[in-house]
Amino acid sequence: MNVMELRGVTKDYGRGRGVFDLSLTIAQGDSLGYLGPNGAGKTTTIRQMMGFTRPGKGTVRVFGKDPFGCAEVQKRIGYLPGETAFPGDMTGDAFLRFVAGLKGVRDMKRANELRERFELDGRTRLKKMSKGTRQKVALICAFLHDPELYLLDEPTSGLDPLMQHRFAELVAEERGRGKTILLSSHLFEEIERLCGRAAILRAGRIVACEQMEEMQKSRSRIFHIVFHAEDAAEAFLRVFPAAQRQEKEIFLTVPQTDAERVLRLAVTYGVEDLTVRAQTLEELFLHYYDGGQA
């Protein structure tokens, strides 16, 4: 069953800002990483999913309904806003009780568990809290009513490595319980660690949406070959003109399927030294990102 379905969603804010013709489905139990640089449209998309804004074109369906102003849908979503703004002058604890009350949560057991997990001291006023502490409060708000679907906009921003780890554990537990998760980030390793699928957004358009394993397979191989002589490197360059040469060294990025051909050719020219590694997801991301600008 699809928990979420976006069809041809466009929200044009002018001057190239916004999202354009987004189509995306998220099935129950899916965990989707929503990746993109700042300003790519991640938050815009999540606001559409929350029903805070209406698409200019296309349709958004969450649990089969239009989420715009739909209280029933909100009940089933745990939302973490990208910006941590809180109303009024409350302490962390008072705010958690307020949000629990709004959500109709009477039992504060889960909220207290989360507070312990994130080591939150909620007695401080929200305004006096550091960014990381405020982020913890916002996270607990998203998780405290045990919803079916999580929409988390840059959930780890401001968290220290230990708390990022705690958050990763929490996400893994929720995935284990069959919850559906969408989390946005501009960090690859985070998505790689937390999600089963990744969608890459660039300038408001989804440029790739694949299972994490597929994406890992599609990573290129990066060769650094040192030949015995410069003319060998020169000869190699004629076969692979995309490579870069520095005296007798060659730098080359090729699809995984071409790796054997590179290796065989290199050996025929005489290799002094060779290193090969898989492209990191970060480099893959930059590749998608730069691809459109070139």
Binding site: F52, Q74, Y79, F86, K103
Partner: peptide, 19 residues
């Protein structure tokens, strides 16, 4: 102040209609 700061998110994300 709710709308300008974005804190309105917590109200909108609660199971209550905007009305």
């Amino acid at each position: 102040s709710y709308v300008d700061s974005g804190a309105v998110a917590y109200l909108l994300a609660s199971p209550h209609s905007r009305a």
